[in-house]
Design a protein around this nucleic acid. Structure first.
Lengths: 164, 164
DNA sequence: TGAAAGTTGTTATACTATAACATAACAACC
DNA sequence: GGTTGTTATGTTATAGTATAACAACTTTCA
């Protein structure tokens, strides 16, 4: 049964999400003297504007369609900045980027990727992190960073007929 | 303190590991009418021969140095076959491939990747899988496949001076 | 103002992966 | 044994992802 409170499937003005994300990012960057330049902000908006993880070259295309006349390194640099400041995440198994749903604090999220609609939900369940840290430690491995990307069907898509 | 029983750091004849892996793969392929051809077997050996995850193009280079005169698709096809039969794993965060340490049964491993020596240890801790499945289910997500890649320092490298 | 640091522009190239179609090897059957 | 359908491999070209290296510009702050 789909969770009708789920923002992704509730009719909502997504532009608000984007604005909120940018506002939050601005606050965070101010705090630590990171410069959220126009380009970086624009890339952040594009990442948030997509309901799915977005690739670097798709971002580049969109920038170009807006009159920007740049090359891949510009996009990768902006992405690097945003990653460094915890404002977006990279999804390794998709070579794509997605907005961080609670930026600011250091964390490596856990991502649920729907195989059908391709939306990504970020979880940050301490129980999962703990299980992994514990399991690693049991063989003497000191974990510093976790890549956790889960495939499956989101609640919304489970409720749909299979052939849709 | 390094675990001196750890096969990776115990002096051992790694050719034996490779032979064992190939023997096991042969058995599994026979069971299910998969054809472990010479090329596929050779790729499997190269994957096992590397103490670190190995990239497709590195495999290609090695094949070429043995007189093989092929192109990328050949390697990718062999890798696909080996993946399909659960004989190797792909490490998403490295775009590289590593031997499966207990092939045969369906599973998605958990990988501990040492940032220093780059060796990979495969874990299959049910507690971790369970934590993830449980956490996913709590928001209605039905997980089918897990990508879990943990960075950190293996016990061996922790024991070394930092600057080595 | 001028030096240092940070950001962006620009060109070229490296690395990873697959599409599409041709050929060859194999297995099973008549 | 030849025929046929299937699987595997060869081959060429190209798509997709990412970075190196160096030049030019901006910002900051002494």
């Amino acid at each position: 049964m789909p969770d009708i409170t789920d923002q992704r499937f509730t009719p909502h003005d997504h532009r608000r999400c984007i604005k909120a994300a940018v506002a939050e990012a601005t606050r965070i960057c101010n705090e630590r003297n990171g410069r959220l330049t126009e380009q970086r902000k624009r890339v952040l908006e594009l990442v948030w504007g997509s309901h799915q993880p977005i690739g670097a070259y798709t971002i580049l295309e969109q920038l170009r369609s807006e009159g920007f006349n740049g090359a891949p390194p510009t996009v990768y640099r902006a992405l690097e900045f945003l990653l460094d400041h915890g404002l977006i995440h990279r999804i390794e198994s998709l070579n794509a980027y997605t907005g961080c749903s609670h930026p600011g604090d250091e964390h490596t999220g856990q991502f649920l990727i729907c195989s059908r609609c391709h939306e990504v939900t970020e979880l940050d369940d301490p129980a999962v992190s703990r299980a992994i840290t514990h399991s690693s430690a049991s063989i003497g491995f000191a974990a510093t960073h976790q890549v956790i990307e889960i495939r499956g069907l989101c609640s919304h898509c489970q409720a749909l007929p299979h052939d849709q």
